[in-house]
Design a protein around this nucleic acid. Sequence first.
DNA 1: TTGTAGGCGTTATCAT
DNA 2: ATGATAACGCCTACAA
Lengths: 357, 357
Amino acid sequence: MPAGRDTRPGKVTIFDVAARAGVSIKTVSRVVNHESNVRERTREKVLSAVRELRYRPNAAARALSGNRSRVVGLVYENAQEFGYTQDVLNGALGACEARDYALLLCPIGLPNPDVVERVRDFAAEGRVEGVVLPAPMGDLPAVRALLSELRVPFAAITPKEAPPDEINVSCRDRDATFALTEYLIELGHRAIGFVAGHPDHGASAERYGGYRDALAHHGVPFVRDLVRQGYFDFESGQAAARTLLGLPAAPTAIVASNDDMAAGVLFEARERGLGVPDDLSIAGFDDTRIASRVWPRLTTARQPIARMAETAARLLIERLNGGTAESLPKPFECEPVIRESTAPPGSRRGPRDPEGC
Amino acid sequence: MPAGRDTRPGKVTIFDVAARAGVSIKTVSRVVNHESNVRERTREKVLSAVRELRYRPNAAARALSGNRSRVVGLVYENAQEFGYTQDVLNGALGACEARDYALLLCPIGLPNPDVVERVRDFAAEGRVEGVVLPAPMGDLPAVRALLSELRVPFAAITPKEAPPDEINVSCRDRDATFALTEYLIELGHRAIGFVAGHPDHGASAERYGGYRDALAHHGVPFVRDLVRQGYFDFESGQAAARTLLGLPAAPTAIVASNDDMAAGVLFEARERGLGVPDDLSIAGFDDTRIASRVWPRLTTARQPIARMAETAARLLIERLNGGTAESLPKPFECEPVIRESTAPPGSRRGPRDPEGC
DNA sequence: TTGTAGGCGTTATCAT
DNA sequence: ATGATAACGCCTACAA
């Protein structure tokens, strides 16, 4: 039988390789871990033994012995809308793969009185060396405090400023919301509604700030009734639109703090037979998939979510490996993306029929 | 200082607990693992020691010693459209949590010549005890063969029939597509387009079969040109619609093999100024989030993706723990969901203006 | 019901 | 440059 050796995994150990190569297990370990001080010929002998035996180091043994599991955790809010998390996942996974780390998930539904206990269960088993905290997890002081207490390193995606020894990754959402609002003003809009993001997200305040700054900067009066609280999901966007569009002085444009809420606004506009952008201009934030899946496609601000998550995971892993405490990156830029959901006000007039026509 | 013991994790071992409780480590082990044969008083002593010391068993040591990592892997296609995967994730995570398992991710972009090597790298490290294979991973014979060779148990979500010793979870997509198509026929449609799913997905053939069966059953002639190949993503749905709606004898209804493609069809209809459902009825499949985020909301078939994934993960974990080889569940039902994207043909006539009005 | 001994597969320490 | 040996923390035997 051709090369009929036992190829069952989990059975070939470092001893088998050492025997095959005629060296000690320590030498095998050196080669496998790319340590120096191994003669080239020895290295090659070992490597071919590894290949022939299809040797794979056992992860559990490595973790136990080296006290390093090569796993990082992702503690994320398990929300209905998954656009943000999808990008976070991909970014974090990219950073992990490149460094031969694995990613373990810890989804948490919010709000949740047991967040801290859930995170503790997750972080204290020693399965993960560190944790990535996308929004809004990094905005929760209790979570940060717990991880500090547990001495589990973490990297957060949050606009908050980081203490010198912590890793925060952020973007300039304030500037981007400013730019979007300004764009609408320049199109001629004066009654511009705003749907705020979830109050537990640090980014929400930033984006609201950008909106208000733009109004102020252009001398457009701020109207309290044109601002509604949202929670970053479709339904809250729709609900906000329901209120705003029912106002006697309804807005001609609405800025939503993310794309999911903007999609909700768009949906409600259509339900009311309003034309978009003719009767109502709509802008979102994030440029997640949904922004270009609805019709018309949404004007929005492109937040580099995946790159931010990749950066967070990368910095975390570097720190875990005692990497030079690389200085934190500057906040990422968010680029406005103009699409078909925005136009000058009243591009077309007159009552619309109930089908949005 | 109040209760100022060292609470650093990963330091408190089973020996500390044993000493504190005045028992042997084996007894602690018994208590922690809920084994029987421990006197109630002893158990309590141990449990309070565990609490006081904040003891957490070390996962790596457990995995190494017991040869059980309590981790299952999820090998999934990392597609642009995430609706399906989102539901799979939640289902699988639910099953894991309930049984104190963790979930490790292995995303794979398809098509990919290295699928098998990627899966091998993932499965052979011994980090995962078994893997869940959502569509289309369980449809790839090479992947199944590899895992069998590696002796890594798996549970797949696929309409294929399972060999007696393997776990396949499926749903009746054929019936559901039949029902949707039939519904359109009963509304009066005769020219019904179809956008097929990715040919590598087992479900695609099933759904196409349901479509053809319905036509045949109702004596509606099958027209080859009304069928277009799609790939389960928005763009391919849009592309298919572009062709179909450009036909001299354009369809009055289009059945897409999933919601993402249906959304693409809807988008293209709007681009062409067609009213939906007045000029064109559209049906999707899955009932993922996007189906009720577009306007009008999509008629579709509700596939219980999360429940299927939960079932797959549950059966896998039961098998891993030598559970009684529970018989596989019957295929899940897919329930048609009628929404606003479908109506009798030509509900309103005449040319539409370019805004889809 | 409880305890003792051995081993899981690797990395780390210290020789050589 | 290489190797023998001791951890790492737990679980599975087998005794008591």
